[in-house]
């Protein structure tokens, strides 16, 4: 295992809960590993499974999708649609051979900076142990 391997994680965060929680982690000066790159959307319901696949394709070692807790969605039930989609996507990722530790769906409220940091650190540790995804562009037979 390459000890220098720093997993790169893409996080799709909803504007109202999870993005705010990560901001709060910042305001509270909590610490988590740097290779954690955020794409902000208004609602986790905007996260198309295609984006998750695209992130892995481009080189992500892990992907996080986070939204408001069920019942707390700023848009009433966008997160429920996310739950439906990601439940199916998880099964497909498994068949693609992507270990389940590399993809997580989490409900993180605007106040749960600590939960966020815990999830981020856990993902880093678990993915570090798995090693890089090593999916390079497969465009030819050469």
């Amino acid at each position: 295992m390459n000890q220098n391997f720093e997993p790169k994680i893409i996080a799709f965060l909803c504007n109202w809960c999870s993005y705010a929680a990560l901001d709060l982690a910042g305001t509270s000066r909590m610490k988590y590993p740097p290779n954690f790159l955020v794409v902000r959307v208004m609602c986790s319901g905007r996260v198309d499974p295609q984006f998750v696949l695209e992130a892995f394709r481009r080189g992500a070692d892990g992907v996080l999708v986070a939204g408001c807790h069920p019942g707390d969605c700023h848009y009433i039930e966008g997160n429920i649609k996310t739950l439906r989609r990601m439940t199916l996507l998880k099964r497909m990722l498994e068949e693609f051979g992507i270990e389940k530790e590399r993809f997580r769906l989490e409900w993180i409220s605007a106040a749960e900076a600590d939960k966020f940091v815990k999830v981020a650190n856990e993902m880093f540790e678990q993915i570090k142990a798995l090693g890089p995804l090593k999916l390079k562009e497969v465009n030819t037979h050469e």
Partner: peptide
């Protein structure tokens, strides 16, 4: 919220400032 956009099977539905191409 963009929930319809993620569901749209043909990519016809998009969200301004959060279009598929922009996020991709």
């Amino acid at each position: 919220c963009g929930t319809c956009v993620a569901a749209c099977p043909s990519g016809a539905m998009q969200q301004y400032s959060f279009k598929d191409k922009q996020l991709k």
